[in-house]
Design a protein around this nucleic acid. Structure first.
Length: 157
DNA sequence: GTATTGATCTTCT
DNA sequence: GAAGATCAATACA
């Protein structure tokens, strides 16, 4: 439901400044998962894209829980589906993703790659939660979704 | 309702 | 020793 793009020549990106130990996965081949520790508390998951050595990735900021709701609730300790995966740290906690998943291919188990069921309406906004280059319009959300990391409104009434 | 802060890890200076 | 692609609890209006 919500993603953010990070590029090589992007001051907010981990790949900014070239390959290092932590961001090695970002510079690997596309289609892998890049997992890192955020603020010492959360895990964040990215999909590596671009060519090998390019160092770009897409941060998964929110998704709509459609399966395994009970497992997600157990891991999160939250009931409301709208709060299960609405944020990068929440998302990884709900899915049980940690450093062990860093570098894994998304087209191999335990993951699966599926085609989008239908065209979706995507809105573009500025990025969130970063201190550098936050003005770049590289955040992409599903139009009208109620599962975003920052709600547009407390449900129209 | 908005604003502030603690938690606590990895990397970099 | 500081900063950071965050979250949730607490403080304040």
């Amino acid at each position: 439901m919500e993603t953010e793009a990070y590029a090589r020549d992007d001051p907010a990106s981990h790949s900014y400044g070239g390959p290092r130990r932590r961001n090695a996965t970002m510079f690997g081949p596309a289609g892998r998962l890049y997992v890192y520790r955020s603020y010492g508390v959360h895990w964040c998951a990215n999909v590596v894209c671009g060519r090998e050595g390019e160092g770009s990735a897409v941060l998964l900021r929110a998704l709509e829980p459609t399966a395994g709701l009970d497992a997600m609730r157990a891991r999160r300790g939250v009931e409301d589906p709208a709060l299960l995966c609405s944020g990068p740290g929440r998302l990884t906690q709900a899915l049980g993703i940690d450093a062990a998943y860093d570098g894994l291919r998304l087209d191999h188990p335990p993951f699966r790659l599926l085609a989008a069921p239908e065209p979706v309406a995507v809105a573009t906004t500025t990025r969130i939660g970063i201190t550098r280059a936050s003005e770049l319009p590289w955040r992409y959300v599903l139009e009208g979704s109620t599962f975003l990391s920052r709600r547009p409104r407390p449900a129209a009434r």
